[in-house]
């Protein structure tokens, strides 16, 4: 019971306090532990824990297939994908390469031609230069997944050099080198699938924005107006909106704000028209059409920048301060063992 209940609490409290105060203590081994060892310990534990996760995932999917639970067909795909990744990572390197020794200088162009049949050559002249500078030993810049395809290509180029050697990239390197089975799986299956998920965000942002911008109350209207100004201010067209359009919009905005206070609509209309005329006259007198004379408030990019720099920054910093204090309080509760999520 002690090992299960009290021991984790003791470890959490002592390590927590040690790491917290370790930041301030001027002893090299303590600093070493806080800055390097502790994080490495975590990485090691997390690396071992991945087995638990992988096994759990596999177990659930296999059970689903065996018991023929609802939508069990999808689980077959998950199991096959899992097995394929394990195979490509641990059991099959799929990273064969060919090295040519003592290449005949007269065959360089022919070699480039052969290479271009299996690998896209962007700059032929550069490749020719590269081969000419390493005639003694040249590794063909193409990784062959299967040994037989490498052998076929080796037979094709065997007449161009004295020696043709076949090799396989070492374990570990095969997961990073471009052209191997693992990298094929990563770039041709995993990356497009991830990108597809990420791309969905564009549609979700559109639907979320539609809901957020629906005018329901004063706050939603404010959000809509600020959002539109920010969007227009960040695109080139924002710079071309003339001052009189912005001044008219500002007058309309003020009119919308004071409208509930003025019951007589004729007076309201008169005030708005007066505002528009007044701002137009001022613009003509002070020549606001010249960019240098235009007040900042009549330029959409300026308003957009102001919204971003002041109200948005102030709001987000207030949230950040709250989050920071919340993190401190939660950490304090955990370090003192008052709150135990474990």
């Amino acid at each position: 019971m002690f090992l299960k209940r009290q021991m984790p609490v003791i470890i959490a409290i002592s390590v927590g306090l040690f790491i917290l105060f370790g930041h301030f203590i001027n002893i090299a081994p303590v600093q070493q532990f806080v800055n390097n060892d502790a994080t490495q310990w975590f990485d090691i534990i997390a690396s071992f824990a991945i087995f638990l996760g992988a096994l759990n995932m596999l177990k659930l999917q296999v059970l689903k297939v065996v018991k023929k639970q609802r939508n069990w067909q999808y689980s077959i795909l998950a199991i096959v994908g899992f097995a394929f990744a394990i195979f490509a990572g641990f059991f099959f390197r799929g990273a064969n390469y060919i090295t040519l020794s003592d290449i005949d200088p007269n065959n360089v162009n022919q070699l480039v031609e052969y290479i271009s049949t299996v690998q896209e050559v962007k700059d032929t002249a550069l490749m020719v230069k590269g081969i000419e500078s390493s005639l003694a030993s040249y590794e063909i810049p193409k990784i062959f997944i299967s040994k037989s395809s490498a052998e076929d290509f080796a037979i094709l180029v065997s007449g161009l050099a004295k020696n043709v050697t076949l090799g396989v990239k070492p374990w570990g390197a095969h997961v990073q080198i471009e052209g191997s089975l693992f990298s094929w799986m990563f770039f041709k299956i995993f990356t497009p699938l991830s990108s597809t998920m990420f791309a969905l965000l564009a549609f979700f942002v559109a639907s979320a924005s539609y809901r957020a911008f629906r005018i329901r109350n004063f706050e939603a209207t404010l959000l809509l107006v600020a959002g539109i100004i920010l969007m227009i201010g960040r695109v080139p067209i924002g710079e071309f909106i003339p001052w009189w359009v912005v001044s008219t919009l500002i007058v309309f905005g003020i009119g919308a704000l004071i409208a509930p206070m003025i019951p007589d609509k004729k007076i309201l209309f008169g005030l708005i028209v007066t505002g528009i005329v007044l701002s137009s006259v001022l613009g003509i007198i002070f020549d606001w059409s010249l960019a240098i004379n235009t007040p900042g408030i009549l330029s959409i990019p300026n308003i957009s920048e102001w919204i971003f720099d002041y109200p948005t920054a102030a709001g987000s910093r207030a949230i950040m301060i709250g989050i920071a204090l919340g993190i401190i309080a939660t950490s304090f509760r955990i370090i003192l063992g008052i709150e135990r999520p474990f």
């Binding site: 809901r211 949230i319 709250g322 989050i323």
Partner: peptide, 20 residues
């Protein structure tokens, strides 16, 4: 994003105060 799409959102310190 959460404020837009969810019914309720715990903002900032509310989230950390939740369990307490």
């Amino acid at each position: 994003f959460f404020v837009t799409a969810c019914d309720y959102t715990l903002i900032g310190e509310e989230f950390f105060a939740a369990s307490a």
